[in-house]
Design a protein around this nucleic acid. Structure first.
Lengths: 263, 263
DNA sequence: CTAAGTTCAGCTCAGTTCGAGAAAAACTCT
DNA sequence: AGAGTTTTTCTCGAACTGAGCTGAACTTAG
């Protein structure tokens, strides 16, 4: 590999290379930003102010900056692009979980040109209402329930491009991640109670769980939560024992997992 | 949304749009093709005949055809591109599982230009030795063990670009898929024995499993396998009872899952 | 043919986990 | 103080798990 003839050939090849020889294709990032507000799961949506699909609701997203240009420096990597795009719509929290969902590149998903969209899922604790950014008429946290019928999120419902499909995939990813990882804590502030954690599961899975058994399983899973030694300021709305406060533990996988079709 | 002024504006916008106004970026697909040959997991690798990184081992891959061009028609979607690229290296089986792994787009991963690589994982039954395709010096099924130290696959080991990382992610995806889905059958011919299925798990996870308990769990998981009513042609190498033959069942998820750190 | 060895498939049993409910502990409100 | 609420722990039968054993079915050596 370190053969100097190879090195020289590599050099000459790169000097002669014309990147514009390829057919144009664009790469965008779209973000499925999920949060829970008073027990109800929400997704961040924007109304498109620019063509195409002007006026439609869409996931926040934008073109990846492949090179330094007039709009700003290149995005070093795809997650940087996702965070940049999202920070143009809303103020980002310090604690968050960003994870790649998938890439969508069907031929006719965008009428302008061939567009490949890398989708990300963001799980975040309750965020402030978004500011309206550029290229955006409106941005808002929208409950999942307004996008589907009751419990499920249905694909292609009133969203631009194929964003209904992307959103449905993102929701399914979140539901499945809660089974096998301790990521439910990403929806919560740094210190939280077991009840708050259970309410995250109940909101995302859309079903109720047995409180006592949930408690037992969470404490039995090594590294899921750590006791802070503190107690919640006060009990629930109508009184009750003050709950212990926990912080997220160091585990990245849950053993055993919490399966969504069990109690 | 069906406002005719919007429709007209959309039309005029698209007519005036210049796709070449964007900075050049390329989209490629790379395939982590995994199979099992005599109990040993293998990955399909090619040696690059073209610059850059000429002479290095790499995952089979190539540029996505965004538009119809001299090389052929556009790829309708990303999975089509992955199958096309792979079919240029080896003959594909009829039964296979193709799944998107992720997209890699760090700024300096390719010296030519900004390249975004959509990686796919392919799980396949034992395939024939690959033909050497164009742009390829050599193509071969390589045991995982030659790429890492013993049980693990380590990143960045002798592979071009960031393909070591991509391969490691693909192997981890396969290991994890075997826990929660019945995809182990994708490594096997249409009819197989429980022992063959167990050997898939043992090969991919790199550990031995308790045969009797494995048998019990497979038959207890609804929809994992279906009895064909037939028996294997003969017993094992050194004699023995003829095993029953099963086919893949209709399930897409395993309940309960087969966790890799249990027996 | 017979005996020994091998593989497959089913069984057993102790230990663990699970679902469901009850009970205890800690707190609020009247 | 007493009733009601919420959190946390406990109980118990059912189900499941890991480990080994046993019998059935087959091959090979002698």
């Amino acid at each position: 590999m370190a053969d100097p003839r190879h090195e020289e050939g590599e050099h000459r090849f790169l000097a002669d290379y014309d990147p514009h020889a390829f057919a144009p294709a664009a790469v965008t990032v779209d973000v499925v930003a999920l949060t829970i507000r008073s027990g109800v799961p929400h997704v961040l949506l924007t109304r498109r102010a620019a063509y195409p699909q002007r006026g439609w609701w869409a996931l926040p997203g934008g073109f990846v900056r492949a090179q330094d240009g007039p709009d700003g420096p290149a995005d070093p990597d795809l997650p940087d692009a996702a965070l940049r795009v999202l920070s143009e719509k809303t103020r980002l929290p310090t604690e968050l979980h960003l994870e790649q969902l998938g890439t969508y590149g069907a031929r006719d998903r965008d009428p302008r040109m061939r567009v490949f969209s890398v989708a990300y899922v963001l799980l975040a604790p309750d965020l402030p209402d978004p500011d309206t950014g550029r290229d955006t008429e409106e941005a808002a946290w929208v409950p999942w329930s307004e996008l589907g019928h009751g419990d499920g999120v249905r694909a292609g419902l009133d969203l631009a491009f194929d964003h209904g499909r992307v959103l449905a995939d993102g929701v399914e990813r979140a539901r499945s991640k809660l089974e096998y990882t301790p990521l439910a804590t990403a929806f919560l502030p740094p210190a939280f109670t077991i009840t708050a954690l259970r309410e995250v599961y109940e909101a995302v899975w859309g079903r109720s769980l047995h409180a006592a058994n949930f408690h037992r399983k969470i404490l039995a899973a090594p590294g899921f939560v750590e006791d802070t030694g503190r107690l919640a300021e006060r009990g629930g709305a109508g009184g009750g024992r003050r709950a212990r406060l926990y912080r997220a533990g160091g585990a990245t996988q849950l053993h055993p997992p919490l399966l969504r079709n069990t109690q």
